[in-house]
Design a protein around this nucleic acid. Structure first.
Lengths: 253, 253
DNA sequence: CGGCGGTTTGAACACGCTCAAGGTGGGTGG
DNA sequence: CCACCCACCTTGAGCGTGTTCAAACCGCCG
């Protein structure tokens, strides 16, 4: 089941299933474009380049586990999930990440976390201490990091509302809306969505079971709000109606 | 019901129910001790002192509402809750804050948030933009802020596990353990807890109803894990047993 | 084309919710 | 200072949403 450990922030290229043949400089450049402020000093740039570690992971593989060194990970390509483990084999997906996202897993808490690849991934990893140490002397970078962490916090809080106070229907509808915003591609009057995660991942993200996810998707399909093809392609026909079903803001009592 | 709006980051002292007669310098000093790095430049100190606004709020009062200027709030005294609002009057408590906490409500998301006082509070508030602008040139401060935001994120994620994958019993037990860590005072072989929030607040925090909270507390009391006196005093007799019931980590399948 | 894992669908069950009726603490006013 | 009173809390009974268990289906990869 667990796609097995694969590339745990290794030193160099490790291709397992022929991801696009990108090189470290290319990946690092993606990181630079996405994360670094333009004002960054050359010295800092070089230091980052030196401390960055290139890693790749196959779909299903573990990227970071509880017990690993604390790392800051940049997703250059692919998609990942951050999973928390509770007793009894229960799992909770705490966040999904896509291209351009920066991940910091600071697990001060009673649970253990694992970062997993949903698809084949290309990653750049930095030892968190070094990275933040450098950032400390580069306010522009630190500020960018703060901004991204605040976004993570905001997403996490939105998810709290979902898990605490929403029905299954609202959760699934809201999930599709959020995914559409993050990785959807617009189509005439709608949005095309290729979901990199399984029903189980969705269930573990929304605090439901795969059966419930499936039933709700069926219901949304029969209501004409979405159309599905294959296991992971969803065409959102009516985003406004979906948002309404997600029960975001006060409407009717 | 809602204790009504009271002191929305006002300019000066506003005593409503005789909180301890602290002065702005005293409150600011508390902020300095709790948040500022020792390395902070005098100029930055003075700037902060100039931009800080003193505010007080009575129990139940609203401190920040959706639509207010984005603020960074320091809790010098008292306790607060950050509440998110969903449709149908449903509420989700996203976080509790106590003395020494620094709150940043950046609501990028589909829901609206309100910061409320649980008890009479003494607060120091800064316009977020100015505060972060200053922090940008003071890496020590920015770093402290980042650290606190990371703690918030970590707490939020722990809460996600709770809301997504735990039973009522585990939620209540976990809640008590967390509160014990944050505001408990050790007693022979146990811990004394004075809860500043109502059953409704707990319910809205744990994604349950007040009835369920009450039933679970009764169950824990009858199991001899806790003893209660009055509405808000809890004596935790056996923390280890409580932690076990919170189902933190893998134990038995 | 064949088989396996993931998904869908169905039926029965359970946990926590809803609705309703007492209790009780603690704050207020006499 | 004590009694009153109201909001908050507790307890109970029945219900509903989502779970659990089980079986059929199907998309995807060999």
């Amino acid at each position: 089941m667990t796609g097995k450990f694969c590339a745990c922030i290794a030193q160099s290229m490790q291709y397992h299933r022929a991801p696009a043949t990108t090189t470290f400089p290319e990946l690092f450049e993606l990181f630079v474009q996405a994360v670094l402020p333009q004002s960054l000093a050359d010295a800092a740039y070089l230091q980052l380049q030196a401390m960055g570690r290139y890693a790749s992971a196959v779909a299903g593989g573990v990227i970071l586990e509880d017990g690993d060194q604390h790392q800051v990970v940049f997703v250059a390509q692919g998609a990942t999930k951050l999973v928390a483990h509770a007793s009894g084999g229960r799992e909770q997906v705490v966040a999904f990440h896509f291209e351009g996202d920066l991940i910091s897993v600071s697990s001060r808490g009673a649970h253990s976390y694992t970062l997993c690849a949903l698809q084949d991934c290309e990653l750049v990893a930095f030892p968190a201490e070094d990275f933040l140490g450098l950032a400390r002397s580069e306010p522009g970078l630190l500020n960018e990091v703060l901004d991204r962490v605040l976004t993570s916090l905001s997403r996490s809080r939105e998810k709290l509302i979902t898990l605490g106070r929403k029905t299954a229907q609202e959760r699934v509808a809201g999930f599709l809306v959020t995914m559409a915003e993050r990785i959807g591609t617009p189509r005439e009057g709608g949005c095309l969505l290729h979901l990199p995660m399984s029903r189980r991942d969705m269930a573990d993200s929304l605090g439901l079971t795969i059966e419930t996810i499936s039933r709700q998707l069926t219901e949304l399909r029969e209501a004409g709000l979405i159309a599905t093809s294959g296991r992971s392609d969803v065409h959102i026909c009516d985003i406004a109606a979906l948002e309404a079903r997600a029960g975001q803001l006060a409407a009717a009592a």
